[in-house]
């Protein structure tokens, strides 16, 4: 095992929810997007990887370390954003800078404040008085300001307006383009992951439904419009989801099932995701 994150048969039960038999290999330098509905297990998976939650079974290695909780020097190489963000309400950005410069050996005050300036986040207002979006921006700046080798970001763009989301995605894109930097992002905003991720993992009911390179995934599926009769004739295993009206039909199909009498366009990640997870268009 030599990837940034290696997971074998991870199992974690939280109340009635069960994250079951998760196996993932995330190589150094990759950007993995974890997609799933609310309650699919995205946060449980990321918190288990961070060592916040105790796993019930399975093997887990992060940056080559199987016991993250006993190795603060390895944890210092990880930048993270949690959901909820977990920063005490009374702190402002200046407090966080004072605390984290003694926490992370590679903390850069300059980077931290330049990210805050770029994201137009307030540095004097306490977190508790900020809007959710501003608090999220501050948490993102904290995750990016110590040149982390691994970023684990749970819903980093959740609660942000579209322009702030674009800025954050742009920042994350820059941060992960550097060689060897690895990022795992969970989100249910598929357009964000489509921009930045190079691999997609879809979780459903605590299990991995799909784990594929983003380009291969988008290449494998097509969004088609055609007549209802033609759609009815396609084998079920080639159809992720379809909607048939008396006059026409639309479907997300495997590329191989597309025929010349269909209007075809590439399926977006959102269309593939909803088709595979919910079976709807």
């Amino acid at each position: 095992m030599s990837g940034a994150i290696e997971i074998r048969g991870l199992r974690k039960k939280r109340g009635k929810f069960l994250l079951n038999d998760i196996s993932l290999d995330i190589p150094y330098g990759s950007v993995v997007g974890i997609l799933g509905e609310n309650g699919a297990g995205k946060s449980t998976l990321l918190r288990s990887v961070l060592g916040i939650l105790k796993k019930d079974a399975g093997e887990l290695r992060v940056l080559g370390c199987s016991d993250l909780r006993s190795h603060p020097e390895v944890r210092s190489r990880i930048g993270f954003v949690l959901d909820p963000i977990g920063i005490p309400d009374v702190f402002n950005a200046k407090d966080l800078n004072a605390i984290y410069k003694d926490t992370y050996p590679a903390w850069s005050e300059e980077t931290f404040f330049s990210i805050l300036t770029k994201l137009e986040a307030d540095r004097n207002q306490p977190i508790g008085k900020m809007s959710h979006g501003s608090a999220q921006k501050t948490a993102i700046a904290c995750a990016l300001a110590h040149d982390a080798d691994l970023l684990i970001l749970d819903e980093p763009s959740g609660g942000l307006d579209p322009s702030a989301r674009a800025q954050v995605i742009d920042l994350l894109y820059e941060a992960t383009r550097e060689e060897g930097k690895t990022a795992v992002l969970s989100s249910h905003i598929t357009s964000d992951l489509e921009k930045i991720a190079d691999r997609i993992v879809i979780l459903k009911d605590g299990e991995i439904l799909l784990d594929e390179a983003k380009d291969d995934l988008l290449e494998a599926w097509r969004y088609v419009s055609t007549s209802a009769d033609i759609l009815e004739g396609i084998a079920a295993q080639d159809v992720a989801a379809k909607r048939i009206t008396p006059y026409s039909g639309e479907a997300v199909l495997r590329k191989e099932a597309v025929t010349a009498d269909m209007q075809v366009r590439p399926a977006s990640l959102e269309e593939v995701f909803t088709a595979l997870v919910k079976g709807v268009i």
Partner: peptide, 15 residues
């Protein structure tokens, strides 16, 4: 409730 204690666990402090 606010998740402060769980965040602490992910920061690089010795136990």
């Amino acid at each position: 409730r606010s998740g402060y204690d769980q965040m602490q666990d992910a920061l690089p402090y010795r136990k």
